[in-house]
Structure formats: structure tokens, C-alpha cells
Amino acid sequence: MPADTVTGTSVPMPPVRSALSEPGWVRILLIGGALLFLALFLLLPLVAVFAEALHRGFDAYWTALTEPDAVAAIELTLIVAAISVPANLLFGVAASWCVAKFDFRGKNLLITLIDLPFSVSPVISGLIYVLLFGLNGLFGTYLRDMGIQIIFAVPGLVLATIFVTFPFVARELIPLMQEQGSDEEEAALVLGASGWQTFWRVTIPNIKWGLLYGVLLCNARAMGEFGAVSVVSGHIRGETNTMPLHVEILYNEYNFVAAFAVASLLAMLALVTLVVKTALEWRFGDELAATRH
């Protein structure tokens, strides 16, 4: 330290770097500490997934992934995401349009309510649908009489997934659209464009990267959700098991290679998500909400 202060005061051109930085050994220590922590807490679990999945060889890995129940779980996960992500996309666009483009009373409350699902435990997100649609729930008997199955079937999984991924797109778009203002839309309208034309030709091109970013995060969570779907799924093999639930079942059947094999698919999904997300941030950083770093 003394060396730094001496140079800082005695040299006429202040050497900004050294005044604002730590001695080399401190730097190395801090970098080393941070990297060690990340390696231990983030990287190692990721490595463990692939190591456990492949430790009986690639054949065992491949067999585990192509086994009918695993395929059914993968299909179901895709179906659930294919319904819930577009639903939340539609909602996100509608919500951000009315929140960002208009001023009305109770807007703050609306924004808080949109955020609400993030602060609810996943287990509660599943529980509420059981209380609503379970046979002993509010609408249980009515639905049974109508022959509609929600809990322990795909609709329940979809509803629970929609709930936990509810805010992703809206939260991404609201700040972005607020920041962009409505000038361009207003100009288009004045020039004679219809509402829909304005939306498709002016708004959408402006928000497309933010939209993609939101959808990406929404999808990652939708495919990976465990707690909420665990409560509403009946855990029927090949029928109501999504990939994360299938991982748990295989894990409980001593079938660790298979459990980690399916888990490795989910881990790859996570990695792809991270790559696309990082690429979006680098490439279109300023077109995403500026509030992000």
C-alpha cells in the first residue's frame, strides 16, 4: 500500500490505474478466491451431471435417453413448454402494451401483481391448482361431472408452468417499452397506419430482441420447473412425467446413469440458454432494456 500512495502523491500525472487498483498479490488472491468459489459451487455440479451420466459409457447413456418413458418425458416437456411459453408471450406483450403505452390509476399495483408469482414458492404454485381443481377442490366435482381432468394430467402441468413462468416476458418488455416511449407509434398513427399495422411494423421490430430474451428465460424455466409440476403431476410414467420429474423417478429407482442422462439434457438446455442469452446481451445489449448491465 505505501508504495501506491507515494506514487499517487509524488508523480504529477496521476497514475490512475495503480491508485484505483490493488497490489498484484491482492488481485491474484481475489481472482483466485472468486474463481475457486465459482468452480466449486457452479462448475463442479455441472461437471458432475455429465460425468455421472457418462460413467457407464456412451451406450448406456444413449439407451437411457431413447428408452420409451424418457422419450415420453421429453415429448411432454416440449408440449408443456409449447403451450405455456406462447401463452405467457401473448400475455407479456398485452400487459406491457397497456402498462408502457398508457397511464392509468393502479398501474403500480398491476405491476406488483404481475411480479407476484416470482415471490411465491413453487410448491404453493402447484398447491393452489390442487385446491382449485383437485377432486376435493372448489371446482373438483363440477369438473369430474364434466369429464374434464386437470390435476394429474397435462392441463394441470401447463397451468402450474404458466404460473411459475408468468412474469418473465412481461418483466422484460415493460421497462423496454417504457424506455422507448410512444413517439414512433404516435407518428405512425398520425401518418394513417392502423393500430395493428403500427403494432406489427413499429412496435414489434423495436422490441424483438427483448421479446426473444424474455421468451428464452421463460422457456428455460418452463422446461426445467420441478416443484410446481411435482405437486400437480400424478407421476405416471410415460404420461404425466416431465423431464425434471422423470429425473427424480429414475433417481429413486437406483437408475443413476439414466437419471443423470436425462438431467444432462436439461443441463445442455441450460447451457444453450446461457449461450444465446450472452450472445443477445453482447450483440443487442442496447436494444434490450437499458436497465440491464
Binding site: 377432486l135 369430474r144 381432468q149 400424478g234 407421476h235
Partner: peptide
């Protein structure tokens, strides 16, 4: 034949709740 497995009490609960 589809199978669902779990703790016995928990499974009974699911059936009561509408697991078909």
C-alpha cells in the same frame, strides 16, 4: 399398463384427489 409409484399414503391421496 401405466404405473405410478410413491409412498403408499401419498399415492392414496393422489387417487382421492383425482388421479385416475
Amino acid at each position: 399398463v401405466k404405473q405410478a409409484h410413491g409412498g403408499s399414503g401419498k399415492q392414496a391421496r393422489s387417487v382421492i384427489d383425482g388421479l385416475d
